[in-house]
Computed example of a mutant assay.
Amino acid sequence: MKELADKHELLMTLSPYIRRALNHRVTNMRLRTRIIFDYELLYMERGELHIRVEDVVHELQEGDWILLKPGVEHEFVKSSAECWKPHIHFDPIYLANSEQVPINFKPRSECTTEEIAYIRQDVLGEILEIPTVLRIPSHKELHKLLTEIFHAQALSREERIIIEKMCVLRMLHIILQDMNRGKSKEHLTHQKGVETAAAYLMVHFAEAVSLEELAKLACLSIYHFSRLFKVKYGISPHQYLIRCRMEKAKELMLYSQASLTAVAEQVGYSTLFSFSKAFKQAEGLSPKHFQMKHGV
Results as ranks from 00 to 15, higher is better:
Leu155Tyr: 12
Ser184Lys: 05
Leu14His: 09
Ala154Gly: 11
Tyr17Ser: 06
Val72Phe: 07
Leu254Pro: 00
Leu142Trp: 09
Tyr43Ser: 14
Thr33Lys: 15
Gly193Ala: 08
Tyr200Ile: 07
Arg227Ile: 07
Ala198Gln: 01
Lys183Met: 11
Gly268Phe: 00
Gly193Cys: 07
Ala208Asn: 11
Gly284Ala: 02
Leu217Ser: 03
Arg34Gly: 08
Met202Cys: 06
Lys185Phe: 08
Ala218Lys: 04
Arg181Asn: 12
Ser226Asn: 13
Cys244Asn: 06
Asn180Pro: 00
Ala5Gly: 10
Glu99His: 11
Lys183Thr: 15
Lys106Tyr: 12
Asp178Tyr: 06
Lys140Ala: 04
His74Gln: 05
Leu155Lys: 15
Val267Gly: 01
Thr33Asp: 12
Ser80Asn: 03
Leu252Asp: 07
Phe150Thr: 05
Asn23Gly: 05
Arg135Val: 05
Leu217Thr: 03
Thr189Gln: 13
Tyr223Glu: 10
Val231Ala: 13
Asp178Gly: 06
Ser274Gly: 00
Leu211Arg: 05
His187Ala: 13
Leu60Cys: 07
Leu146Gly: 04
Thr196Val: 07
Gly234Val: 02
Leu201Met: 12
Lys69Thr: 13
Val296Cys: 09
Arg20Gln: 13
Asp178Ile: 08
Lys232Thr: 09
Met179Val: 03
Tyr240Asp: 02
Val263Glu: 00
Leu10Glu: 01
His151Asn: 11
Met292Asn: 11
Arg243Ile: 00
His50Val: 08
